[in-house]
C-alpha cells in the first residue's frame, strides 16, 4: 500500500504483527517472574489508545484550523509537562507547579512561533499541521532538562545547608546564598541537551528526521528540519531550566532571607 506522497501505510494486520513483539517480551518477563508483565500489557494498551486518539484529535484539529484551539492545545501540553516536572522534583517548594508551567510555556510559545513564523514560514501563522508537532517537540524534549534542573536545585541547596546558613549569617541575600546551587543545577540540566547536540546523527538518527525519511522525504530536506529542531529543543531546555530555577529558588527562603531547612517547611505542596 503506498499513497501518492510515498508513505507506506500500516494496516491492522501489520499492527497486530508488531504487537507480536510484545507477546515475546511478555513471555520473557513472565518466565523470569519479573513482576512487570501486567504493566507491560497495560503500557501496550495505553500506547494503542493514546496514539490512535492523538491521530484522531490531530486530524480533527488540522481540519478545524482554529488559532485559539491550537493555543489551548499548547497550554494543555505544557500543563501536563509541568506536572511531570514537578512530580520528579518532590522537594520543590509549594507553588512550583504554576511556576514550572510559566517557565516552560513562555519559551515554548516564543520558540514554536519563531520557528514556524520566521524559519519554516507557515501561512497562516497557526497552521496546526506545523505548529502542534513543533510545540510538542519543544515541550516534550525540554521536559527532562527542566525536571533535572528543578530537582537538582533543591537537592543541592539541602546538601549545602551549612554553607547557605554561614553565607546568610555573613549578610548574604538569598540569591548570593543559593547561587552555587543554582549554577550546579543549571549545568546539570543543560548537559544532556549539549551532549545530544554533539552526538546527533552519529550515535542516533533523531525521531523527526527518521520519520520524514520514512515518509519519503529527501534526507537532505529532512536534515535542515532536524537541525532546526535540535537547536530549538536545546534553546527551550536552557531557557526553561533557567526560568524554572530562577522563579522557584527564592521560595525555599523566608521573606527575611532565611533558608528553610528540612523540618521548617510547610508540608503539603
Amino acid at each position: 500500500m503506498s499513497d501518492p506522497a510515498g508513505v507506506i501505510a500500516i494496516g491492522w494486520p501489520q499492527l497486530l504483527l508488531a504487537t507480536g513483539f510484545m507477546v515475546v517480551t511478555g513471555g520473557i518477563t513472565l518466565a523470569l517472574q519479573l513482576g512487570v508483565t501486567k504493566a507491560l500489557w497495560l503500557g501496550t494498551l495505553r500506547t494503542y489508545l493514546q496514539l490512535l486518539a492523538l491521530g484522531l484529535v490531530l486530524g480533527w484539529v488540522f481540519r478545524l484550523r482554529q488559532p485559539l484551539l491550537v493555543l489551548a492545545i499548547i497550554g494543555v501540553m505544557t500543563a501536563v509537562a509541568a506536572q511531570t516536572v514537578v512530580r520528579r522534583a518532590p522537594d520543590a517548594p509549594r507553588g512550583s507547579y504554576v511556576r514550572a508551567w510559566a517557565a516552560m510555556g513562555l519559551p515554548a510559545l516564543v520558540i514554536t512561533f519563531a520557528v514556524t513564523g520566521l524559519i519554516v514560514r507557515v501561512e497562516p501563522w497557526y497552521l496546526p499541521r506545523y505548529v502542534i508537532p513543533i510545540a510538542g517537540m519543544v515541550i516534550g524534549n525540554s521536559m527532562n532538562g527542566v525536571a533535572l534542573a528543578l530537582e537538582r536545585t533543591f537537592a543541592d541547596m539541602d546538601a549545602r545547608e551549612n554553607e547557605i546558613l554561614a553565607l546568610t549569617a555573613l549578610g548574604a541575600s538569598p540569591w548570593e546564598a543559593a547561587r552555587e546551587s543554582v549554577r550546579t543545577a543549571l549545568r546539570a540540566g543543560m548537559i544532556p541537551s549539549i551532549n545530544t547536540l554533539s552526538t546527533v546523527g552519529i550515535v542516533f538518527i533523531p525521531g523527526m528526521m527518521a520519520g520524514q525519511v520514512l515518509a519519503g522525504a529527501d534526507p537532505l530536506v529532512a536534515a535542515p528540519y532536524q537541525i532546526v529542531v535540535m537547536l530549538m529543543v536545546a534553546t527551550a531546555d536552557v531557557l526553561g531550566s533557567t526560568l524554572v530555577v530562577l522563579l522557584t529558588f527564592r521560595r525555599r527562603f523566608t521573606p527575611d532571607g532565611v533558608f528553610l531547612e528540612k523540618g521548617w517547611r510547610p508540608h503539603a505542596r
Binding site: N162, L170, G171, A172, G257
Partner: peptide, 13 residues
C-alpha cells in the same frame, strides 16, 4: 534590612 542586621550581629554557625 535583615542582611544589614546580620552584618552587625554576626553568627558563626
Amino acid at each position: 534590612a535583615p542582611q544589614r542586621w546580620r552584618a552587625l550581629v554576626a553568627l558563626l554557625p
